[in-house]
Simulated scan of single mutants.
Amino acid sequence: MKLLPDHLLEGYRSFIEGRYLAETQTYRALARDGQTPETMVIACCDSRAAPETIFGSAPGELFVVRNVANLVPPYSPDGEFHGTSAALEFAVAALKVKHIVVMGHGRCGGISAALSPDAEPLSKGDFIGKWMSLVRPAAEAVGANALMTAGERQTALERISIRHSVASLRSFPDIAAREAAGELSLHGAWFDISSGELWAMDPQTGDFERPLAGIEPLPTSG
């Protein structure tokens, strides 16, 4: 039995002979001095929307947590297991990040599940269904809009859920305090996998707009 799949080993070979070789001193400094990222990104675990790739980040630049549909649960110190909240706690209290970005994306499977409440659960535990209940009220409202197409409902809920997660961030006392003191800024972003477009949320209106509208993605065929 192989220790790792071949494609992972080939990828590692490419990394160690390429990027690591070119940035050896950076990696050694990170190992010696620790990480000091200024930005945390809360992204979806979808394999097509990796924030390090989208933002072209160098080692140590982004502190990333990924979960289904890039959701942030409300502050709830109840003694249960809270992976996203634990990552937020570390980023804010230990790393002192200056920015938190909630980044969603088009064609999100978690959002699709939220818009299909009658679909058969993937497992008896229905972990995805429970997790996506965080946006159930919004999903029910968007899903009931018969004037929108299925694609429009999908995109609408993807963006609404980003606004919802940014609001949930402010339920964490340390985050709210640091934002009020001007030490931390909260952002929303949405990435279109098909076109490569990046949209950012206006902090005042909640609308999404393209911050680099003058840069056109390469044309696609088909």
Rank of each mutant, 00 (worst) to 15 (best):
T84D: 04
D78F: 05
I111R: 05
A58L: 15
S133T: 12
D78N: 15
R28L: 15
A58Y: 11
R163V: 06
D118R: 15
E158T: 05
Y20M: 07
M103N: 04
D192F: 01
I100E: 00
T24C: 02
G129L: 04
A69N: 07
S85M: 01
E80M: 09
K130E: 14
G206R: 08
T53N: 03
Y12V: 06
R159C: 10
A146I: 01
A139Q: 06
G182L: 11
D118W: 00
A94F: 03
L122E: 13
H187R: 06
D207S: 13
F172M: 01
A113V: 02
F127K: 08
S171G: 11
T53E: 09
A150K: 14
A167Q: 13
G182Y: 07
E52D: 15
G83R: 07
L4K: 13
N70M: 04
E23N: 15
D6C: 05
D6M: 06
R66T: 04
G18D: 08
Y20V: 00
L21H: 10
I111K: 08
L21M: 11
L62V: 12
M132A: 08
S165L: 10
F90V: 12
Y27Q: 10
V142W: 03
W190C: 09
N67S: 09
D6A: 13
I100W: 02
I175M: 07
K96D: 13
D126G: 12
L88A: 12
E158G: 07
T39Q: 06
G206D: 08
S171H: 05
V142T: 11
F81A: 14
E120L: 12
N70C: 05
G143W: 05
L3V: 12
E209K: 06
M1Q: 09
F172S: 02
P203R: 05
L71A: 10
P137W: 08
A87S: 15
A180K: 15
P77E: 06
D202H: 03
L115K: 11
H164A: 10
